[in-house]
Amino acid sequence: MKRPAAVLILVGFVMLFLGWAIGTFFTQRTVAKAIATIPGSPIVLSAKYDKEKHAILYSMLNPGGMPLTIVEESFVFTPGSESKEKGYVVSHLPVHVVLPPGVVTEVELKLKAGTEKLQIGDAVLATFTYVHPLSKDLYSVIHPFTMGVKEQKKEKAQTGKEGGK
């Protein structure tokens, strides 16, 4: 059998760890609750052209704690040297895509129907307009996509308030 001093030290250590666990738990809960009320801005992790659907698929991460909703898409098509298609602009394409907090979501951008498939060198500058539950303001993310060029690290996605109602 152990000596009483050893028992007390053992129990003391266990109590210390228990107190640590309790403190960590409550701190974590407080921080998690605070973070859950901060809206983030979506980050485009990768963009891929889907030939069959004639659409570009964006993988978007919502790093904040609040759900974001994309309400509008618009894009500018700039043809490369190999394409016969003319440049065109599509704006104010209403969509409703919810980005849940902390998760990567796939967002589809349909190119103009009846146009040619994308060739290497074609560029699509897409603008996603999104809202979050805390305000009525509209925010946007702009993502440049060039066909055949590997996704570069320096992402040009910019966030800026476009103006509230």
């Binding site: 059998m1 152990k2 000596r3 009483p4 028992v7 007390l8 053992l10 129990v11 266990v14 109590m15 228990l18 666990a21 309790i22 738990f25």
Partner: peptide
């Protein structure tokens, strides 16, 4: 989780006193 952490306090006390009473 919070329930378990609260319950752990008397449990550690019971365990420690059980060891101590066993020794004496």
């Amino acid at each position: 989780e919070a329930l378990t952490l609260g319950a752990a306090i008397p449990t550690v006390l019971v365990w420690g006193l059980e060891l101590l009473s066993g020794y004496y």
